[in-house]
Design a protein around this nucleic acid. Structure first.
Length: 461
RNA sequence: UCCCCUGUAGCUCAGUCGGUAGAGCAAGUGGCUGUUAACCACUGGGUCGUAGGUUCGAGUCCUACCGGGGGAGCCA
């Protein structure tokens, strides 16, 4: 394999003759000399190619040497006499592999809006912004695995298709092979017995319940995979298909859960700062001023930990006027979460011990019988980024909560079995990968941190 | 799903009181011995989202639909 542009930029400009492959980003003509910047996505930086217009073969390619065309340039790698780059290639031959006609190719050597680029999602990775997002996303994926692997967590592949219809985490996409134009009926209702699985099936909204079963066998596990929500939500923070990270730890209480979650976030931030300095410089200067300092500061500090009751007190004491008034028992609204992280504490905040009414059935009930051992991590700008809890480990209390929440215990027989045989305290949390990328990069819209966003009425690519 | 904003040149936008279309960037041509957000000059470029309506006349006002954005809810 020939050297990537990233590798070439790290070489000495000692006059060696090498090939360089990439796509033309921009071209500048002066009298007698043409400057070409080519990029191959291996780094956000471009390689400058200098072409003496007198050299044989230039006239043959000049018309097609346009933004977006793909080229192989061979020439001497030399120290650059100009400012802005250490080395450059003095072209000795140029081959155009694929042209990009200027009147058709949608990217120009100018800034484009993210809204426009979303319409050409197959071309947008060739821009600085989306190249940087892709590289940071890659680094973060790797960091997730290394964080857990270094701590002995087992990576578990929980199912994508699920038969549990009542996980309660959101609207589900149905999966079926039944002919939708002629659905088989029994007594007026759909006969799922004739469907592929013999029962109603859906795409998973969470791997947590299955994750718990493996944690209760392997101690510490994590999942990292696609998740689906059929909610009709149209915001810059929601997708119908997104990636979620869900660790689950046996013999672990809510405090251990918080410790791991906090360490995890700091590890990811530090990792990206170390491994993607060029891309992060780009985000810091062009996308969101101050992201680097912000991440660095968070990675080196301790998160504020308060109870839900304290949070409500703080919000009430602030005398700020909210659209939704604050009182004990309400679910915290976006405006409340933002006020806590951006105005009161100005840092990530972990809130624990929520009223049981506003949380899921599987969370461990506290002795007060009113609150559960939930923990949400809120960050400035995005609000909730992590949601987790210590799980209810007592069979009877869990069964009661299932009934209280209007669910059918029979649907959870295998989940309840965990509490019948060798039950242990265990805890875990869930974290939306794209929201984490948003936080790290400062990108405003979640549709711009995933290659091909799936959302309501969005499935062009 | 609700509220608000928006749709005009390839892109980003301006367009006053309703009177017949503008800029910047991009592109093309020419100029400039090394540029790097290159620079200077000139040139070309429009079914004003779609369909109706009001009017002598609609980019502009009204209605519906479609697309995009922001916020809320739901949530990760």
């Amino acid at each position: 394999m020939k050297a990537t542009i990233k590798e070439i930029l790290g070489m000495q400009g000692d006059g060696r003759v090498i090939p360089a492959e990439g796509w033309v980003r921009t071209r500048r003509d002066s009298k007698g000399v043409t400057f070409l910047e080519i990029n191959d996505g291996s780094t956000i930086k471009n390689l400058q190619v200098v072409i003496d217009q007198g050299f044989g073969g230039f006239d043959a390619v000049t018309a097609n040497l346009t933004t977006g065309s793909s080229v192989v340039v061979t020439g001497k790698l030399i120290a650059s006499p100009g400012q802005g780059q250490a080395v450059e290639i003095a072209a000795e031959s140029i081959e155009i592999l694929g042209t990009a006609p200027v009147d058709e190719f949608p990217l120009q050597k100018k800034k484009h809006s993210f809204e426009f680029l979303r319409e050409i999602a197959h071309i947008r990775p060739r821009t600085n912004s989306f190249g940087a997002v892709a590289r940071v996303r890659n680094a973060m994926s790797f960091a997730i695995h290394s964080f857990f692997q270094e701590r002995g967590f087992i990576y578990v592949h929980t199912p994508i298709i699920t038969g549990s219809d009542a996980e309660g985490a959101g609207e589900m996409f149905q999966v079926t092979t039944l002919p939708l134009e002629k659905v088989p009926l029994v007594e007026g209702r759909v006969d799922f017995g004739q469907d592929f699985f013999g029962k109603k099936a859906s795409l998973t909204v969470s791997g947590q319940l299955e994750g718990e079963t493996y944690a209760c066998a392997l101690k510490n596990i994590y999942t990292f995979g696609p998740t689906f929500r059929a909610e009709n939500s149209n915001t810059s923070r929601h997708l119908a298909e997104f990636w979620m990270i869900e660790p689950e730890m046996a013999f672990c209480d809510i405090t251990g859960n918080m410790d791991i979650a906090e360490d995890f976030l700091k590890y990811i931030f530090a990792y990206v700062l170390e491994k993607c300095p060029d891309d992060m410089d780009f985000f810091d200067s062009r996308i969101s001023k101050g992201v680097i300092d912000n991440l660095r500061q968070i990675a080196g500090s301790s998160f504020k930990r308060i109870s839900y009751t304290e949070a409500v007190d703080q919000l009430q004491k602030s005398k700020a006027s909210f659209e939704f008034p604050v009182s004990w028992g309400i679910d915290l609204q976006s405006e409340h979460e933002k006020f806590l992280t951006e105005q009161i504490y100005r840092q990530p905040v972990i809130i624990t011990d929520y009223p049981k009414q506003i949380k899921a059935f599987y969370m461990k009930l506290n002795d007060d019988n009113d609150t559960v051992r939930a923990m949400d991590i809120l960050v400035p700008r995005l609000g909730e980024i992590v949601g987790g809890s210590e799980r209810e480990a007592d069979y009877d209390r869990l069964k009661n909560r299932i009934v209280e929440c209007g669910l059918n215990p029979d649907d959870y027989w295998w989940y309840l079995d965990l509490r019948r045989y060798g039950s242990v305290p265990h805890s875990g949390f869930g974290l939306g990968f794209e929201r984490l990328i948003q936080f790290v990069t400062g990108m405003q819209n979640i549709r711009d941190v995933i290659p091909y966003p799936r959302a309501v009425n969005t499935l062009e690519f």
